[in-house]
Design a protein around this nucleic acid. Sequence first.
DNA 1: CGTCTATTTGAATGTACTCAAAAGCGGTGG
DNA 2: CCACCGCTTTTGAGTACATTCAAATAGACG
Lengths: 195, 195
Amino acid sequence: MYDLEKNTLLSVFDPLSFSEKELQTIQSCLEKISLKKGSMILTSNEVVYEQYYVQTGCLRTFYLDKSGKEHTLQFAINDWWISDYTAFFNTQKSILNIEAIQDATLFKLTRADQEKLYQEIPKIETFFRKKMEKAFSSFQKRILENLSLTAKEQYLSFIFKYPNIEQNVKNYHIASYLGITTESLSRIRKELSSS
Amino acid sequence: MYDLEKNTLLSVFDPLSFSEKELQTIQSCLEKISLKKGSMILTSNEVVYEQYYVQTGCLRTFYLDKSGKEHTLQFAINDWWISDYTAFFNTQKSILNIEAIQDATLFKLTRADQEKLYQEIPKIETFFRKKMEKAFSSFQKRILENLSLTAKEQYLSFIFKYPNIEQNVKNYHIASYLGITTESLSRIRKELSSS
DNA sequence: CGTCTATTTGAATGTACTCAAAAGCGGTGG
DNA sequence: CCACCGCTTTTGAGTACATTCAAATAGACG
């Protein structure tokens, strides 16, 4: 295995270290995917068998409501995992869509291959459990901020959390994440710039 | 072990079945707790070493913001687990408070004992992983509803999800869960009753 | 019955929304 | 290099909805 490729695989499960044999197992489970900006890797109402590790680029998950509005649940940049996990956990149909909002390179991991990794490399199960705990915590924080902060404060919290997001996402994406209109976000930004 | 007590322990890890020896291990890890309505089992800024299984009664977790407002994150009734999981996972200080809003009986399980159970009865780790996945999914749903539904629709979704909640929680608790004032909730309920 | 708590109602205010239009920005082709 | 086009953001005016504060009712309980 070329070192370059090996380093890439290692970065997927970053704090862990592996034997040569384990790396081969991992390699057999990960499929590299390149995406063009604007393309979708998941649309609602598909059964979800896979999750994705984002190596480069930027993606988002969003929910399309009955009135046709998009609501961004999450952005994912380098070193994040992304899927419709609610559907993934139960091998159900997705309610979310996943879109590349920048050209991106990903690694795909199917549920079946994940189980295989759990069997062969148990520490990977712990790795994913911790990822899940982090994701859970960030959802909890999001709910609490939603309940306790004004739109302006939520925007500030957002750009603090994702300091380099500006290059990747449009303001209307941020608005759809915050649950406000682009117009409202524009006015909030105006206020902030003049103070 | 009396059958009654045994059945109680079994209900904590419901779909699983255990040997006599495993039941003893479980028993040694669970501590039964009785709570009076109004009492707190966690206040913010404490290190969180435990989670609780709710056998009877009703509890809620809430966040107290700088302005002194309470924001309810969750209610927990029979067969739910409750804690400040964000703090629990990392053995950090809580930002949440947990209050009994009805007389309640709980089982306490510490992080250390949970690890012990994982070692001795591996299927319990899977059990908790699935609980976590469910909790994650319900947070995701909450965020999406927050983004896509009106206050009235969120209220309807809430009473649909917790059909028997009325006996347990005050309307001002529901309002603090929905992120609206008691007055607004009152007006929403009035509209609904007249239509 | 009286007291305490919870809910409802009213009026004024504020914040975000919709709809429509203008301005800004980036890339392409003449 | 500039003009044009499509996309994004900003601005404006009017409206809708939730908020605040204050007061009135309704319920629960001794």
